[in-house]
């Protein structure tokens, strides 16, 4: 060791700082790593391998949690009567899985006319794996990129060269027109949801994650119609989401909304609570008057 140091000392005519060796080491490592990253030949293969592993993991999860209704290979299962027990998943795409599992609708607790939103049972990694597996079964929309539903970047809609609050207002206005023409029929003008045939219902869509709104439009969960990118283009989907966000933020100007369900809830409250309160009050007035045992001396 002494010999080595002495040799090094003799070879170098410059004094070195105590950290110089470490610095050289770090630079060397960075260079090697960078070169590898640029020049490595197996980059693409690597993602494929990752994806294959994800699909494999997804298939294992699928066989445990989904195959009972959707079939071992997602081919769907029919009942003896010919109606659908679990629909085929061959062409639904990753977006449908991300929506159904990500909102807790799948796996269903019991078969029924509608899968309600409930606690999510898979974690993000597992949902990603399931989505990758189902996407590998056929065609279908992928999980949308975050910038597709990020309404803080509406784009330069009024063409004034900047992206500002005015553009967002335009986006919300356009979104309201699309929402009122296409969504209110089932989901109510406030997005409060409504009843559908045979025990189904259009769920409330207020306060729902923007990604899930986007995916629902894209895939048409359960008996909902789809609004594919050819039907409502991505920028218009973003407009609908912007409108829903605005609804969430606006105050209820004229008092309580009672769920925004229109005359049904308002009528129930008025008749049962309002009128009931008045009748009860009237009964109470008539039933109680304080009396005393004392006598008034009638003069």
């Amino acid at each position: 060791m002494r010999l080595l140091n002495r040799t090094a000392g003799r070879l170098s005519r410059h004094r070195r700082g105590p950290l110089a060796g470490l610095l050289v080491l770090v630079l060397g490592l960075l260079l090697t790593g960078g070169l590898y990253a640029v020049l490595a030949p197996a980059q693409a293969d690597n993602t494929d391998q990752d994806n294959a592993a994800l699909v494999k993991e997804g298939r294992e999860l699928f066989l445990v949690g989904c195959a009972f209704c959707h079939g071992q290979n997602g081919e769907g299962i029919l009942t003896q009567g010919g109606s659908q027990y679990g629909p085929a998943l061959t062409d639904v795409g990753a977006a449908a899985v991300d929506f159904q599992v990500g909102t807790g609708r799948m796996p269903m607790a019991v078969p029924g006319s509608q899968a309600p939103r409930k606690k999510v049972v898979y974690n993000d990694k597992e949902i990603e794996a399931l989505a990758a597996y189902v996407a590998s079964l056929g065609t279908g929309p992928a999980v949308p990129d975050a910038d597709l539903y990020d309404t803080s970047s509406p784009g330069d809609l009024n063409g004034d060269g900047t992206e500002d609050e005015k553009d967002r207002d335009l986006l919300v206005t356009r979104g309201s027109q699309i929402f009122l023409a296409n969504c209110t029929a089932c989901h109510n003008f406030e997005g409060s949801g409504g009843a559908m045939p045979r025990g189904g219902f259009a769920p409330k869509i207020r306060g729902v994650d923007s990604k899930h709104i986007y995916e629902a439009m894209l895939t048409g969960p359960q008996s909902m119609d789809t609004f594919s990118d050819g039907n409502i283009p991505p920028e218009d989907k973003k407009a609908v989401i912007a409108y829903l966000e605005t609804l969430d933020k606006s105050p209820s100007y004229s008092g309580f909304t009672f769920g925004g369900l229109g005359p049904v809830s308002e009528g129930i409250i008025a008749w049962l609570c309002g009128l009931g309160l008045l009748v009860g009050f009237a009964v109470w007035i008539a039933a109680h008057t304080t009396r005393t045992s004392k006598q008034k001396d009638e003069a």
């Binding site: 296409n182 119609d225 594919s228 050819g230």
Partner: peptide, 13 residues
């Protein structure tokens, strides 16, 4: 509306 843009299951008002 381009006919080729619509997918099976799409609804348009």
């Amino acid at each position: 509306i381009l006919a080729s843009d619509l997918e099976i299951g799409d609804l348009v008002n």
